[in-house]
């Protein structure tokens, strides 16, 4: 698809900004999101191509503003909902529960 992910040759995105002494994961959730890749891949049976395509379908403005592991999270949710392992309602209910201090 002619999506925002197809970045080669695009102008106006600014300089490349390396970070000194960069940690592998900047926040704990990034490590959990990373590890969910191998863990969900093993039971859910999606392909890396399907995973990449799910990332490509992130709305363009959000794609540019969000981090790499947010892209992954979006793709896990898509792949797992598509296969019926979780539903949007389950996820939203649990997010609300966590936001109100629940487990």
């Amino acid at each position: 698809m002619n999506g925002i992910h197809d970045l080669g040759g695009m102008h106006g995105l600014g300089p490349v900004v390396p970070e000194q002494d960069e940690p592998v994961f900047h926040e704990k959730w990034e490590g959990r999101a990373f590890a969910l890749f191998a863990s969900t891949f093993v039971f859910a049976g999606y392909t890396v191509d399907e995973f990449r395509h799910a990332i490509e379908k992130i709305p363009p403005a959000h794609y540019l503003e969000s981090s790499y592991y947010e892209h992954w999270l979006f793709a896990f949710e898509e792949a797992l909902m598509k296969r019926g392992f979780v539903t949007r309602e389950e996820l939203d209910a649990r997010i609300a529960q966590l936001k109100s201090g629940g487990p």
């Binding site: 704990k28 959990r32 969910l36 969000s66 999270l73 949710e77 996820l91 997010i95 529960q97 936001k99």
Partner: peptide, 11 residues
């Protein structure tokens, strides 16, 4: 995203 990851991992 931190909360979304926690929710997904918990479920």
């Amino acid at each position: 995203p931190a909360i979304r990851v926690r929710a997904l991992e918990a479920i």
